[in-house]
């Protein structure tokens, strides 16, 4: 699945964006399948906004985003849901877990959304063990710390088929050790699917062997 941006400009940041030079905003950019993309962005340059545009949950932009030669608005709600179930996964900066559910249920929700389970319970527990969150799986998501929630959100994003993974500061609340573990898990899962990802963060890092770097 190819993602290409054409003169994409967020309306709320329009003046600011047009004053500065950006690698993404108001440019023609194409992300080819399997690319591991790092987008470095200082605060307030619209990094979360970009992720939301790419995941098609915000539409307040000019220019357009083509997914496989077709702009986002051309997809109907059912097609969009299909893409989100099998082609594009996401880790939001604000995580977005359901407080009514336990940590495990939050993961399961995504795991069985397509009708049958994508990963077995053992595989999920294995992933939880890697990120050291096994002990909180049965806890209500409302009671978890931010770092725990972040790791649950990461696992949730990985229990579905995808060819692109969007990540918005996915390690912001993890210590170095857990960041390393999470990055390893994400890299394994992306490799297994031959999937690409787009990661936005404030600083440079070496968590992944990126194939493309952009400055927002």
């Amino acid at each position: 699945m190819q993602i290409s941006l054409h003169q994409l400009v967020p309306i709320p940041l329009k003046e600011k964006v047009l004053q500065q030079t950006s690698g993404i905003w108001n440019q023609a950019v194409t992300f080819t399948p399997g690319q591991w993309v790092k987008i470095k962005a200082p605060s307030g340059t619209g990094k979360t906004t970009l992720i939301h545009y790419l995941y098609n949950t915000r539409y307040d932009y000019t220019g357009d985003i083509h997914i496989d030669q077709k702009p986002w608005p051309a997809y109907n709600p059912t097609e969009l849901a299909n893409i989100r179930q099998s082609q594009v996964s996401v880790i939001f900066q604000d995580l977005r877990l359901f407080d009514q559910l336990t940590a495990l249920e939050n993961i399961e929700l995504k795991n069985i959304m397509q009708g049958q389970a994508y990963y077995s319970r053992e595989k999920i527990e294995d992933m939880a063990a890697q990120l050291q969150v096994t002990h909180i799986l049965q806890q209500s998501a409302a009671t978890l710390s931010y770092g725990e929630r972040q790791r649950i959100a990461i696992i949730r994003a990985l229990v579905q088929p995808f060819s692109w993974l969007m990540m918005d500061e996915p390690f912001s609340h993890l210590d170095e050790n857990n960041t390393r573990r999470a990055a390893k898990l994400i890299a394994e899962e992306c490799t297994a699917r031959k999937a690409g990802f787009i990661l936005t963060d404030l600083d440079d890092d070496t968590h992944f062997p990126y194939t493309a770097h952009y400055q927002l």
Partner: peptide, 15 residues
Amino acid sequence: KEINLLVTLGTKPSQ
């Protein structure tokens, strides 16, 4: 809010 998040996560309208 919940329905929006479900849709965001990819729940189909038909579901």
